[in-house]
């Protein structure tokens, strides 16, 4: 027996109420729960409510509060969501690992690309020439260059609907922002270390920022790739 649209909507709302907030996590859970309920109704002859409670319990969520075992359906369904929380956390961990793996796998190829070659030549050229005049300005320019990929993300889906409440995109943002955070951190370390120095060796800072640029730039390229995939999945879901 196929579930009705209303029943599927009910299951989706039940997942939202149980704090499964990411749509890309929810879509897998929804399909599993609907398939399991349809199967249980057909083969075990139980009702929709009984089947849903059964599946809810199967994900590791409690369906009683420890002392009252005969709670009514709605209460039993929302008394605990630890199973779903654990599910999301594990998915988050694996998603992060997947993104990192993709980043390092494509990194050598990206470094060899013509586009990157031109970009790094321009960055080094500008920073080197400015450094001859003013080392401090050169460090600032190198820092700005490191921040450009982060700012560019605004044009790649920050306001896109597919990005909202998507675990895949949340982890992609974390990955691509990592190297920008590192440049910020190195600036903090530099400032505290050379706080009292009369002539600060800005060249260290400049070199650090230029070295971080390829990572930050490839972080943006990976983010864009993941964004396009995610957008495609979202469109398929909404179609």
């Amino acid at each position: 027996m196929k579930l009705t649209k209303e029943e599927i909507k009910y299951i989706e709302n039940y997942l939202i109420k149980n704090e499964v907030k990411f749509w890309d996590v929810r879509l897998e859970l929804l399909d599993h729960i609907v398939s399991a309920i349809e199967d249980k109704i057909d083969n075990e002859g139980i009702s929709f409510n009984e089947a849903l409670l059964d599946v809810h319990h199967g994900f590791g969520n409690r369906i009683h509060n420890g002392y009252t075992y005969d709670l009514d359906f709605e209460k039993a369904l929302h008394i605990d969501n630890k199973g779903f929380k654990k599910f999301t956390l594990k998915a988050q961990k694996e998603m992060g690992r997947q993104h990192r793996k993709r980043f390092w796998k494509t990194f050598p190829k990206y470094l060899m690309s013509f586009r990157f070659f031109i970009e790094i030549l321009i960055v080094i050229g500008v920073v080197y020439n400015v450094h001859q005049q003013s080392p401090k300005t050169s460090a600032i320019i190198a820092l700005i260059v490191c921040f450009v990929p982060e700012i560019s993300k605004v044009f790649f889906g920050v306001f896109d609907r597919s990005n909202r409440r998507s675990l895949k995109m949340q982890m992609a943002v974390n990955l691509s922002s990592l190297y920008v955070c590192m440049s910020y951190l190195s600036m903090g370390i530099f400032n505290s270390y050379y706080e009292d120095a009369a002539n600060k060796p800005y060249v260290y800072l400049t070199v650090t920022f230029v070295c971080l640029f390829p990572f930050a730039r490839h972080g943006l390229a990976t983010y864009k790739q993941i964004f396009k995939e995610n957008q495609k999945e979202y469109k398929l879901m909404c179609s």
Partner: peptide, 25 residues
């Protein structure tokens, strides 16, 4: 599911999405 996600992250599995009965599979 954690096992499937782990295998996917390790690059042993690939994912394909398809619309089935008004939901994504």
């Amino acid at each position: 599911y954690p096992a499937l996600h782990k295998l996917e992250a390790e690059g042993l599995l690939d994912v394909e999405l398809a619309k089935v009965d008004n939901r994504l599979r």
